[in-house]
Design a binder for these strands. Structure first.
Length: 508
RNA sequence: GGGCGCGUAGCUCAACGGCAGAGCAGUGGCCUUUUAAGCCAUUGGUUCUGGGUUCGAAUCCCAGCGCGCUCACCA
């Protein structure tokens, strides 16, 4: 049984009072002729003295009752506008009715003529109004006050990150900049689609519920299909299904959707996240690099009209990011410059481990892992934090890249690159391995490398190998976290700020 | 998982071993161009939960729950 606060009980009484007066506090239909901004524009466009009738609908955000008149601000999807209730037009009874029965947060429909107040503010002088939806709970915010210089000053607001995420509806209702972030997010995704569509990519949908998982090194979520009597997994990547489509002569495909990884939660990790992957026949990783640069540039232009962004990674740590052109840095070179170790001189895990602990006694690499994982350690420890400006880091160790094609003449290295900005990984791409015999061997190697970790070990996907044996064109593939891109472009330092409903524990 | 920090009214926060408070929101009153409207009055608390120390705990200690930051993990 819901327990209501005193504030809520007062509003419940008002709902009852409305019903006893024969007024439905939640009517089925609503009317409006203008949004707030349309009404203001209509007033500005109309000749002096010509009446501008309008019917508006929105949520009450502020009221200023003054006895024989009353002002209110309502907010709709477009913006805010002031309402003016006066006994001259409405009579004392209706003004009292408004003051008594309407609260902050209620949705109201108001009809009247547009006017300007003494201070010049475009305002609807109300001749009739009605309740559209009564709010039981007050919105958790006080007031936004627009200062003379046009900035918004907030006197008190919903700020607790937990509450804001758990009650995103309330966060969105009271924090306009949060709405803006999610509009930007939608625009980013739309721009990505536009770009890929206009480059002859076909948007496809592949299974989220899979009998086997693969395409990334991550622990999956497991579920069960009752009728099929088999366990299923939520996908950890799209890769293996999208590449099956290349076998089927779909030359350029992409998918935007959700991946699920049963791993830690952090400022840049959420258990489900939105991924873009594309694959293009006859591309190699250099062509993918060019396309990526063009694609991100297109998103910047289309959504923001600029390729320069300010990103505050930590309080006071502000970066100016420029996505006009990406630096291209060979991983070996980057690691050499930042750690002083040349990985090419250490072809075995043992040799590389010794080099690391000798040169960096304070570093704590895991002595049991492969050479590739040690290189990844060097990358994360020394190189990654320095990759502030957009950078393509290329040529990765083979053993941590089981789906990438070897670099000709270099058996330890594959044609793979990752895009970095502001010190974190944004995307991952490679020249895709299309040799079914090599692919099978890689799967088998993985079984050994991940011997200690049953779940993170990619299961051997026989059907994928069967597909590849029919012939897969040479191709380049790409994956990018949309959430991280949105973080960078909207200056949000936590992934939770760009997810409408980030993962949370059950409420106690 | 480790470390640090936080949890007090609807919201934002004080009080830090001695009567649980403020602003806004709410309620009642005055007020015909306000815009943080103003003025007067006033309601509202399991101080996250459970133990403990103490004459006395929001405050100190222990445990738990939740969250934040950070480290680890994370192709």
């Amino acid at each position: 049984m819901t327990e209501y606060t005193q504030l809520q009980q007062i509003r419940l009484q008002k709902i009852e009072e409305l019903r006893t007066q024969g007024i439905n506090p939640y009517p089925t239909r609503a009317e409006r002729t203008h949004t707030s901004l349309q009404a203001i524009a209509a007033l500005e466009a109309a000749p002096e003295g010509e009446p501008v009738p309008a019917t508006l609908a929105g949520r009450i955000r502020a009221t200023r009752p003054m006895g024989k008149l009353s002002f209110a601000h309502i907010e709709d999807g477009a913006g805010k506008i002031q309402l003016f209730f006066r006994i001259n037009e409405l009579g004392q009874e209706k003004v009292d009715f408004f003051n008594k029965m309407f609260d902050l947060g209620d949705f109201i429909q108001a009809e009247g003529l547009m006017m300007r107040t003494r201070t010049g503010e475009p305002t609807l002088q109300v001749t009739d109004f009605r309740m559209l939806a009564k709010a039981v709970s007050p919105l958790p915010a006080d007031k936004d006050v627009e200062q003379p210089d046009g900035t918004i000053k907030r006197y008190a607001a919903l700020e607790d990150p937990e509450l804001r995420a758990r009650q995103r509806y309330a966060d969105l209702a009271v924090n306009p900049q949060v709405r803006e972030t999610f509009r930007k997010r939608a625009a980013i995704i739309k721009a990505l689609r536009n770009f890929l569509d206009s480059n002859d990519f076909l948007e496809v949908e592949t299974p989220i519920l899979q009998p086997l998982y693969g395409g990334a090194a991550a622990r999956p979520f497991t579920t069960h299909h009752n009728e099929l009597e088999q366990d299923m997994y939520l996908r950890i990547s799209f890769e293996l299904y999208l590449k099956r489509l290349l076998v089927g002569n779909l030359e350029r495909v992409y998918e935007i959707g959700r991946d699920f990884r049963n791993e830690g939660v952090s400022y840049k990790h959420n258990p489900e996240f939105t991924q873009l992957e594309f694959y293009a026949a006859y591309f190699d990783y250099l062509k993918v690099m060019d396309l990526t640069e063009a694609m991100i540039g297109h998103v910047c232009d289309a959504v923001f009209g600029s390729r320069k962004f300010t990103f505050e990674k930590e309080p006071g740590k502000v970066y100016e990011l420029d996505f006009t052109s990406w630096r291209r840095l060979e991983m070996r070179q980057g690691i050499l410059e930042t750690s002083g170790i040349d990985i090419a001189e250490h072809p075995t895990a043992e040799s590389l481990f010794q080099a690391i602990v000798t040169r960096h006694p304070q570093a704590k690499p895991d002595p049991t892992v492969t050479r590739g994982k040690l290189i990844d350690f060097l990358l994360g420890e020394f190189l990654e934090p320095t990759l502030i400006q957009p950078t393509f880091l290329y040529d990765y160790p083979r053993d941590i890249s089981p789906l990438a094609k070897p670099k000709p003449g270099d058996p330890l290295t594959v044609e793979r690159f990752e895009g970095y900005a502001a010190g974190f990984e944004l995307c991952n791409a490679f020249t895709e391995l299309n040799d079914p015999l090599d692919q099978e061997q890689r799967f088998l190697d993985m079984q050994e490398d991940y011997d200690d970790d049953e779940e993170e070990k990619n299961p051997l996907d026989e059907d994928y190998l069967r597909a590849m044996r029919y012939g897969m064109p040479p191709n380049g593939g790409f994956g990018m976290g949309i959430d991280r891109l949105t973080m960078l472009l909207t200056n949000n330092r936590s992934i939770r700020e760009v997810l409408l409903f980030p993962a949370s524990r059950n409420e106690a």
